[in-house]
Design a protein around this nucleic acid. Structure first.
Lengths: 231, 231
DNA sequence: CCGGCTTTGTGAACGCGTGCACGAGTGTCT
DNA sequence: AGACACTCGTGCACGCGTTCACAAAGCCGG
């Protein structure tokens, strides 16, 4: 019997870092680097070396003590673990500003996520071509998902339409959603949702900026003045 | 002397949720809801009620037992804490697909992050207008940052140009960076960086999808077969 | 073949964030 | 006024993730 991998659950935090390691390792492979230490990989990934080793240890004991990891082998293992051994076609809902940019991005297909379709409700957008894909009516969503075996949907609609888009995706059979709309989506527990929210990111940065200027005021000026960073 | 707020450090996890609460509260205010319970807010934000209360407690004791929180007051407090009492102009580096989408997005300025400028290296892009802003040469970056008092920079360049873009931003005086390029940026510790990486998000979803199909194979088929989701 | 050098893999301690559970206020109704 | 229903604020325990530190393991030179 073949060696059945333990297949222990990989912590989410680790899963989120694996793609980063993968990208770096692929780059190193292009540079004809064939071995790499956890130290070096950690440096390139901007994390702690122990973390790298622990992360990689979830995949199995693929390093060699005293030597490091074989780059190409690691690439293979990570790709396998992330399910990147085959393509995952995605469907994009919403052909607005963002949907267009995503479809035209290109980096999508290259990285194993070809755009199987783009749909919208707006008749004026239907038929236009984005990144080699013709925009279709949202009623064709289910048909696209089924014929192209799509598991991943991208919500790139205005906020007000996002929940409906998500529901259509779920009904069509999609089990993972990447949500760009600034809305909390309600979906069955079995559906995996990840969100990318520009406004949230900027506001987090704003928080830190504000804190920074606060601190300056505090140390430079007299204490106790009412807070205002307006200057 | 005015009541100096404790100003204890707010956990990052909480900071990341405050913008979500803020958006929901603003919506509720528009709906003329003037009071809200932690339970209701939790439901709308898709989180636990205890978490909401703990998060809000970092801002101060602004709720009323037996009643809830006054929506408009909470909105004010969160905005203040996040530093959203004034605008934070941002500068976008890279006028490619993504940079254009971001500049044209509109939701930027509305939410307090007006686009102070867009720069690129490509002469063919300079002078074109995106979302009301003319694209300028990257050499003008420092000038823009200084004259418009920009603290936040957005990196929307191809991967190979991202590190250089970041360094230029830092040199120009930017202290927070939102990075869309799939690259780990190296910047002084004093600079805050947040990244938005499409490929990473999709690969995380891929991991879960793969895991899902794996599990199905495992329970449906016989055990111990080598793993391959190629079917 | 041995000793020294390198680097992995992981046990253990620590710290942060989450969620429970409950005391403490607040409003309402009789 | 008193009883009751409601909801906040928070102490506490738990679990996950990070980091340290070191033994185990492999390589190399003499």
């Amino acid at each position: 019997m073949p060696v059945e991998r333990p297949r222990r659950r990989i912590p989410e935090a680790t899963v989120a870092r694996l793609p980063v390691y993968l990208r770096i390792l692929a780059e190193q492979a292009d540079l004809e680097v064939d071995r790499i230490s956890s130290d070096r990989l950690a440096e390139l990934a901007g994390v702690n070396a122990a973390k790298v080793r622990k992360d990689l240890s979830y995949l199995g004991s693929y390093g060699t003590r005293g030597v490091g990891y074989e780059v190409s082998f690691l690439v293979y293992q990570i790709r396998r673990e992330l399910g990147l051994t085959h393509d995952w076609p995605v469907v994009i809902v919403g052909a607005g500003n963002l949907g267009q940019a995503l479809a035209g991005y290109g980096g999508f297909g290259e990285r194993g996520f070809p755009v199987a379709g783009v749909v919208d409700v707006d008749p004026s957008k239907i038929g236009t071509v984005l990144g080699g894909v013709r925009v279709r009516h949202i009623d064709e969503l289910a048909q696209i998902v089924q014929s192209r075996r799509v598991n991943i949907g991208v919500v790139a609609t205005p906020p007000a339409a996002a929940q409906d888009a998500a529901e259509r995706l779920v009904r069509a059979g999609v089990t993972s959603i990447l949500n760009f709309a600034p809305v909390v989506l309600t979906v069955p527990r079995s559906v995996e949702v990840r969100k990318v929210d520009l406004a949230v990111e900027l506001q987090i940065l704003s928080y830190h900026e504000q804190r920074r200027s606060d601190g300056q005021l505090r140390s430079v000026g007299a204490a106790g003045i009412s807070r205002s960073a307006s200057a």
